[in-house]
Nucleic acid binder design. Structure first.
Lengths: 210, 210
DNA sequence: CACTAAAACGGAGGCGCCTCCGTTTATTAC
DNA sequence: GTAATAAACGGAGGCGCCTCCGTTTTAGTG
């Protein structure tokens, strides 16, 4: 392990209130992250940083000041996207019955993974390098998933003997079986299948069809 | 794949089905490998390819024609060096008593590893990617080592209940314990210690004794 | 020897990476 | 409001990567 920089004025607590960024700086930073998200989705993690800066309407120097390495930028984008995936859970829970919310969220999860498949290798490396990132993110996903599941269980629309990590584990199969043309379809079928399994033996035998 | 150039008058035993390189091409290729060896030793595997070409007195285009990727070049250099390490075994065997030859070879092995330590991570990646390379190279090293050992055993200067892979395994400890200032010294001591162990219980108890 | 086709050369050019530093801007103090 | 100061900006510049293609060299043939 490399030696940590000793805690000086800058104490690395979790993100909140770390440092009050100057208004313009914050604006530029946001624009960079946004542009990076688009670029990474379009061209993979090797997208040109200069193009990202250009797209964000800032100089390349600004990009490098905010994100000293490509990996920093990738990590922030990745975190943001996981965050938004999790936020979608709340959103769905508000507008749908619990089991439907759960199913739709899982489909969304598939979509999310789909956009990331190309980057799998690079992400793998990043996640290995930065093990905090992985546990961090899978923790969050588990949390979001748990709420959906608990609601559905409480509602009686799915069986009660499963928990978030079970389902996440089942979804894990999506990572595998790489690169086939019909990956997307198979994954969606997997989710449907999983849902059927979850509904089987539920106290309330509802058909959530559609 | 297009059809291979038919094996005609010149079939090289060493390189199967390789094409006879034009004289100037061969010359340039050799110069490149030589320059690359120097550069990699001096600046690590990230050494500038343009600088290597410059040093070899050829254009960058020539470098890329011979070695389409950096990894190709690294691999060739690595192979060459292992080759020369193995060749040293024969050389030493000719000019020294078997046990001395063995000991000196092991010291040389240490020196060889020493130059490679900085590159450890990059090499690790390369060796993982290209698994043939690793088994290939460790096979060769084992072979060289075996000859030294068998000669020493036959000569009675070391004990007879060890073989090449035992010793190689013992030397394996050299890879570990990274980065200390006294790494080199400790490694050399490890070799001496190992030699003592090998001499212990030999039929011929001391040099000059018989 | 001259001639030719194939092989090899080499470097310009286009792009991306990253650093450095003079200029601009937000914030704070008065 | 103005001034002072720290923070942030941005892009030129230097270097490296890699490709592409016009030029040169070699090996073969009569």
């Amino acid at each position: 392990m490399a030696s940590q920089p000793p805690a000086t004025t800058k104490d690395k607590a979790e993100t909140p209130a770390a440092k009050p960024l100057r208004a313009d700086a914050q604006r530029n930073r946001d624009a960079l992250v946004e542009a990076a998200a688009v670029a990474f989705a379009a061209h993979g993690v090797d997208a040109s940083l200069e193009e990202i800066a250009r797209q964000a309407g800032v100089g390349i120097g600004t990009l490098y000041r905010h994100f000293p390495t490509r990996e920093h930028l990738v990590e922030v984008v990745y975190r943001r996207e996981v965050e938004s995936l999790c936020a979608a859970a709340d959103e769905l829970a508000l507008h749908h019955p619990p089991d439907i919310a759960l199913e739709q969220w899982m489909q969304r999860f598939v979509d999310y993974i789909a956009t990331k498949r190309g980057l799998a290798t690079s992400l793998r490396i990043l996640l290995n390098t930065n093990s905090t990132l992985f546990s961090d993110m899978s923790g969050r996903v588990t949390l979001a998933l748990r709420q959906l599941i608990e609601a559905a269980v409480a509602d009686g629309s799915i069986r009660s003997d499963v928990d978030a990590s079970d389902v996440l584990h089942a979804l894990g199969g999506i990572y595998s079986a790489p690169d086939t043309k019909d990956w997307r379809d198979r994954s969606r079928r997997l989710v449907s299948l999983l849902m059927d399994g979850l509904r089987f033996g539920a106290t309330k035998s509802a058909k959530g069809g559609g």
